[in-house]
Amino acid sequence: MAAYILRRFVSTIAVMAMVGIFVFLLLRLAPGDPAAMIAGKSATAEMIAGIREKMGLNDPMPVQFIRWVRDMLGGDFGTSIFAGRPVLQLISQRLEPTISLSILTMIVSVTIGVSFGILAAWRAGGLVDRILTAFATLGFSVPVFVVGFFLIYLFAITAHWLPVQGYKPIDHGFGPWLVHLILPTVTLSIPYIAFIARITRASMLEVLSEDYMRTAAAKGASSYSMLFHHALKNAGVPILTVIGLSFAGLIGGVVITETVFNIPGVGRLVVDAINNRDYPIIQGVLILVSGLYVLINLAVDLSYTLVDPRIRY
């Protein structure tokens, strides 16, 4: 087990290195010039050329790459071309809203999604199943931004219960923080609830149709015991996989949700950075996001052994 974890950590570094090279090349090959974006719409060619030279954007690519990796190993993720501030500082300023939104969404989606999934599997083919399946299908059929605008219209503009947009840091009080996150969380959760409910239902049904479940039923096990002791445990591997995997998709959803609700998070930061070709920020965010993602999935892989004793590493 310890050896396995060690091996996974080593391979995590390999994954990150790959992501690093990939991201670096992708950005440098892309057309678009940060210098021109800085200089402004009507800037002259000389003004742009001067800025390029000053920023080191004219150096050969390998030189730029080595400089970047060397600095990063020393904990320096570079300086934003635009804001002129350290990338780590810019990212850390934006982390709180994104983490708040992600964690709330995960809690809401897993709680409701797994419950719905179990409920639907328990009464498979029945009315509850059909209602929940219909919800899951519908929740999965509407684009996130459409749901967002609909909720804003209903709860913020028409009813005035909740703010339209913005974010309040948690140290300004739990109330304002939560109020500003309710609509974004609901918006972002809907597809995940649907997603997790579907996978849970499918996995549960698969397990419930196994022979040993019939045996258990024949032996007179209660439906509670059937569902939670036998079925959920065995259906756990696919469910856990999906939750782990959802995290990258979640960041994608966060990008759109942050745009709709004007939340100053990492998603907005990176989309703006891509539009401006602010390379250091894009590189920094992608490296950090992928690092986080790899770690989460390592945790998921390890947790398989807890859920399904047949899997050993």
Binding site: F22, L26, P31, A248, G249, V270, S290, G291, V294
Partner: peptide, 18 residues
């Protein structure tokens, strides 16, 4: 893992800007 760890939307934006 490496491929997956880059969110779809960000990868797509980056690829399309390329």
């Amino acid at each position: 893992d490496g491929l997956m760890s880059i969110p779809t939307i960000l990868l797509a934006i980056a690829l399309i800007s390329l």
